[in-house]
């Protein structure tokens, strides 16, 4: 039966391979196949029979394409593995290429190299800390990884604590989508929150937020606002913020 399913997925994808450029910010579904701009020009969806996508040949000169989360290279083709909205980021220098990924709604963090995360130290064994980052396996972190740590000067990190972030403040968990939303460069929520109270805040790509304000009351309000922002429209949010600013 598994074979049959994969056949269906393939045939479906083959029929409907859409150009990635045309479906930007649109919903894509797992099993769907995408065409990158380069392939589109070279072969196009019209030239049926040919394999629609080549990641290797000829693309290197035009810029590298990176598959982000939710996309997967399958032989010569690019398949969607998560449902969500397709996003694209142009590379810093030249044109073409860049990063494609799928923004989806999920809570479970899948560790990715290069992500900034908030971890909780669960154990200390020798030179290595075991850190829980929300993934399926704990991460291990050498004590030398901390700022200012040398072989003589060990960082003061206690097991099951967050020695580095600070003893106060509140750590809470939100969905990964909300974190990405908050970390977007032009995020209004963060600017508005910043106007309310002076605060310290740390975002981890693993869905954890640490926030600290002057009083416990303020910290609680901030945490609740950030959590509630996920399912609010801009207008609703503005209303709430103006109400909070009054009191």
């Amino acid at each position: 039966m598994a074979e049959a399913v994969s056949v269906v997925a393939e045939s479906l994808a083959g029929d409907r391979a859409r150009a990635a450029r045309n479906v930007l910010d649109q919903v894509v579904l797992p099993g769907e196949e995408l065409l990158l701009p380069e392939q589109e020009d070279a072969e196009g969806p019209g030239s049926a029979g040919e394999r629609p996508l080549r990641l290797n040949a000829g693309t290197r000169s035009r810029g590298r394409v990176v598959c982000g989360p939710g996309l997967r290279r399958y032989g010569d083709r690019l398949l969607v593995t998560k449902c969500g909205r397709l996003r694209h980021k142009e590379p810093g220098g030249g044109s073409g290429g860049g990063v494609y990924w799928v923004d989806s709604q999920q809570k479970r963090y899948v560790p990715v190299k290069g992500d900034h995360v908030i971890g909780i130290v669960t154990a200390k064994s020798g030179d290595i800390f075991k850190v829980d980052v929300g993934g399926s396996e704990p991460a291990s972190l050498s004590y030398l990884a901390f700022e200012g740590a040398t072989k003589r000067n060990r960082p003061n990190v206690q097991a099951s604590g967050m020695g580095v972030i600070g003893q106060d403040g509140l750590l809470f968990k939100v969905t990964l989508g909300l974190i990405r939303k908050l970390l977007a460069p032009d995020c209004e929520i963060l600017q508005e929150v910043g106007k309310l109270y002076p605060l310290e805040i740390v975002f981890g790509m693993n869905g954890r937020i640490w926030v600290k304000a002057k009083t416990i009351q303020q910290t609680l309000i901030l945490a609740n606002i950030l959590e509630a922002c996920e399912h609010m429209t801009a207008d609703q949010r503005k209303q709430i913020f103006s109400r909070l600013a009054e009191c």
């Binding site: 829980d132 099951s160 604590g161 003893q167 403040g169 509140l170 750590l171 416990i216 009351q217 910290t219």
Partner: peptide
């Protein structure tokens, strides 16, 4: 998921102030 020290401290201090997370 382990409970971090800062969460624990915060929760206990909030309870002392008669405040709850929600």
């Amino acid at each position: 998921t382990p409970l971090s020290n800062c969460e624990r401290r915060f929760l206990l201090r909030a309870i002392e102030e008669k405040k709850r997370l929600d």
